[in-house]
Computed example of a mutant assay.
Amino acid sequence: MPKIRKAVFPVAGLGTRFLPATKAMPKEMLTVVDRPLIQHVVDEAREAGIEHFVFVTGRNKGVIEDHFDKQIELEMTLESRGKCRQLRELEQALPGPGSTSFTRQQAPLGLGHAVWCARDLIGDEPFALLLPDVLVQSKPGCLKQMVDAWDDLGGGNLVAVEEIDPAKVSDYGVVGVGEEKGRAFGITGMVEKPAPAEAPSNLIITGRYILEPGIFDILDNPEKGAGGEIQITDAMIKLMETRPFHGFKFEGRTFDCGSKVGFLAANIAFALERPDIEPEFRQVIADLLD
């Protein structure tokens, strides 16, 4: 069975919900504590054994490429000043030479189109898809849990799901639940943004996927879906007609960092798990709430 070696990161979005902060800076470079969103997600992928990182970018996203490159002047300055810890952190966060690729989406045509733009870089092998807007706080990371489950299932397609209030399912893609195997289960169907009374469950698709390369064949001839965009969910529904799909109930807490409240909550949650700042930060929170 093949190994999950490659991951796709769609980073071409404009980040309009965070203007004016994202006027000149990609939303993926907004920091949760002291690491950009995209660094958190790449770290999750590396823990899961990903060897090649494919970024689907757009205009004004060059700083992401710079972030995952060596900064010679900075490193020399840190070394000359004896800042060994910071230098070591930079080195540990850097993917290896030749392990990153960048391709342009060129037009905001939807998540399905962004995935299709990575087709030649992925080739004929299964791959992971991680949405940088979604942070998952868990140990091991969400994708590591999924890769282990994918191995146990013997391959196929696997999507991360989580339970939400049934009254809110109309904002998400929802899956039907079939035969269960541990934390995984067969998906009997997918519905995009159903009315609560028509939803097959209260399990929504989260921003982590393992997909077979057959998804590219479907995206070669896409139909526009919700919002007039090419939706990955629509392509997955078609792929389900011929290939197995499973859902995976991962362990962890998710934060929608595409929203201001979710982004702020992520900063608090990730700060509170950092032993170097947790005691002082907890006291600051207590003082603010007093």
Rank of each mutant, 00 (worst) to 15 (best):
I204W: 07
L129E: 03
I277G: 09
M236P: 01
F250T: 04
G214H: 04
V261F: 12
A269G: 03
H67C: 04
P166H: 02
T16N: 12
F18I: 06
E179G: 09
Y172I: 02
K260S: 08
L111S: 01
S80L: 13
E47M: 01
Q106G: 06
E278G: 10
G228N: 09
K249M: 14
H52W: 06
V177G: 05
F68H: 05
A45H: 03
T57Q: 14
D66L: 13
V54Q: 02
G141S: 14
A160E: 02
N60E: 10
K70Q: 13
R59S: 13
L219A: 00
D69T: 12
F255R: 01
Q106N: 15
T188W: 10
L74A: 11
D34E: 10
A167F: 10
H246S: 15
T22Q: 06
I72W: 15
I218W: 00
F185D: 07
A48G: 09
E179I: 12
E223W: 00
A12V: 00
G176P: 04
G155T: 07
S259F: 10
L264Q: 10
A197E: 14
E278L: 13
E278D: 10
C84L: 13
T22K: 06
Y172N: 11
D43M: 07
I204E: 07
L19F: 05
A24C: 07
D217W: 02
R88C: 13
G225N: 06
F245A: 03
R59G: 14
N60V: 08
D220S: 11
G49D: 03
E198I: 06
R208V: 11
T31C: 14
I50G: 01
G154P: 05
F250E: 02
L143P: 08
T100K: 05
P132S: 09
E229L: 15
V261P: 00
K181I: 13
S201G: 03
L211D: 01
G189E: 15
V11L: 03
L14N: 14
E125R: 09
A199S: 14
G13V: 05
T16I: 11
P2S: 08
E280G: 12
P200F: 08
A48K: 10
Q86I: 12
V56F: 02
N267M: 04
R253G: 09
G98R: 01
F53G: 03
E229P: 00
L94N: 00
C257Q: 05
